[in-house]
Design a binder for these strands. Sequence first.
DNA 1: ACCATGACGTTTC
DNA 2: CGAAACGCCATGG
Length: 111
Amino acid sequence: MKSSDNFFDKVYQVARLIPYGRVTSYGAIAKHLGAARSARMVGWAMNNSHNQSEEVPAHRVVNRKGLLTGKHHFDGTNLMQQLLESEGIKVIDNQIQDFEKVFWNPSEELQ
DNA sequence: ACCATGACGTTTC
DNA sequence: CGAAACGCCATGG
């Protein structure tokens, strides 16, 4: 356990706030946390999300292009895609369709 | 303290 | 329009 888990904790909390059928990007979360240039850290936090006691919907977090870059880190190869499709999100070849439509901006939606 | 890595993002060629 | 390089920042060795 780290002392400055605050950053990671924030990422996890925001990730859990993602509504059903919606997705967000690492940069959006990072920006909302005040670390717009730490988008990579958000991804790193997701990598550590398995360390968290509570489950984190990391499958709802993708890169700015709407590409499931992190699907490779899931148990299955297409688990992430299936989870998103299960929520009504169209995913083709690791690419989310209508990404801007399902995009969830924490800074705006959460206000 | 320094070097290497990473589920990103933006700019440049 | 597509690919590559650079930048940013935190964690680990």
